[in-house]
Nucleic acid binder design. Structure first.
Length: 271
DNA sequence: TTAATCACCTGAGGGC
DNA sequence: TGCCCTCAGGTGATTA
């Protein structure tokens, strides 16, 4: 599923083709995504130029002179640059036909994604204004997490997956970062020490940087029609490895539910 | 304010 | 082989 590294890779892949490009036409085949795609979207942006494209958390934003297009890939979404002659397949919900004879195609089998429009200040949008810092920014520190967590009884895994605390840490990276930090996913956030948060923040940053570095590979594998796990999956220590021996101590990795999410952990290494 | 749960949706995989 | 059921997962909305 697209997590922050996949969203970043998607953005870097489409950006050279869409920035400063005019949109000739928008074709909406399935408007029912997480929220309905605005009916008037074609009228709103046809003939208009995309000024800049950027990312905030897992949202991709396309700036126009008169507003912003907000895109989210949800659980299964992807965006690709294709030739305009490329026939649409099932789940190809939106095409943005560009003046350079390319098209930007939004595909999302599970339809948890979103394509929204706002003419207002994008940073004050309801979906963005409460978001926490980017995990790779300097402002995301151990002290920041430690201070926020002092009165929080929620499990540490739930805490670091909360977008209001920090954006872009999904189930895969939360599982991996906690494994590498030797922190049990059910520990109350308030119980985690500053020293442990220092390790955790360091591991979150390391694993995200690593994933972004090989994100292209991850994304290609993710888009395979057979859905088979790819190169990045091989790099994981815990996620998806329940029942396997722990890479650190050979104890069998266990799986529990934390906030309705599967969480693999080592009962011996993670305390 | 916080925490827990529900809802959305489809494909994969297992059991029969 | 085909049907049915369960699970997976990001995140806003709702409820406690």
């Amino acid at each position: 599923m697209p997590e922050l590294p996949e969203v970043e890779t998607t953005l870097q892949g489409i950006k050279p083709h869409i920035d400063q490009q005019e949109i000739k036409k928008v074709i909406i085949r399935q408007p029912k995504l997480r929220w309905p795609i605005p009916r008037q979207l074609n009228t709103l942006i046809s003939g208009k130029i995309i000024g800049n494209s950027w990312r905030r958390g897992k949202y991709i934003i396309l700036d126009f002179a008169h507003g912003h297009l907000l895109l989210h890939l949800g659980m299964s979404g992807k965006m690709r640059i294709l030739e305009t002659s490329e026939p649409a397949q099932k789940h190809d919900h939106v095409d943005f036909i560009l003046a350079n004879n390319k098209l930007l195609r939004f595909t999302d089998p599970r339809r948890f994604g979103a394509v929204l429009w706002t003419a207002d200040n994008i940073n004050q949008h309801d979906l963005l204004k409460h978001l926490g810092p980017e995990p790779l920014e300097k402002s995301f520190t151990a002290n920041y997490l430690y201070d926020l967590s002092r009165n929080r009884s929620a499990a540490i895994k739930t805490f670091i997956m909360d977008g209001k605390i920090v954006v872009g840490v999904g189930n895969i990276y939360a599982t991996e970062a906690l494994f590498l930090s030797h922190i049990h996913p059910l520990r109350p956030a308030s119980d985690v020490t500053l020293k442990e948060y220092q390790t955790l923040v360091s591991e979150i940053k390391k694993i995200l940087r690593k994933a972004i570095k090989i994100g292209g590979t991850t994304l290609r594998d993710f888009t395979k029609s057979d859905g088979s796990p790819g190169y990045f999956y091989q790099q994981l220590n815990a996620y998806g490895k329940a029942g396997h021996p722990c890479p650190g101590c050979d104890e069998t990795l266990d799986v529990i539910k934390v906030g309705q999410r599967s969480s693999v952990f080592c009962p011996k290494c993670q305390r």
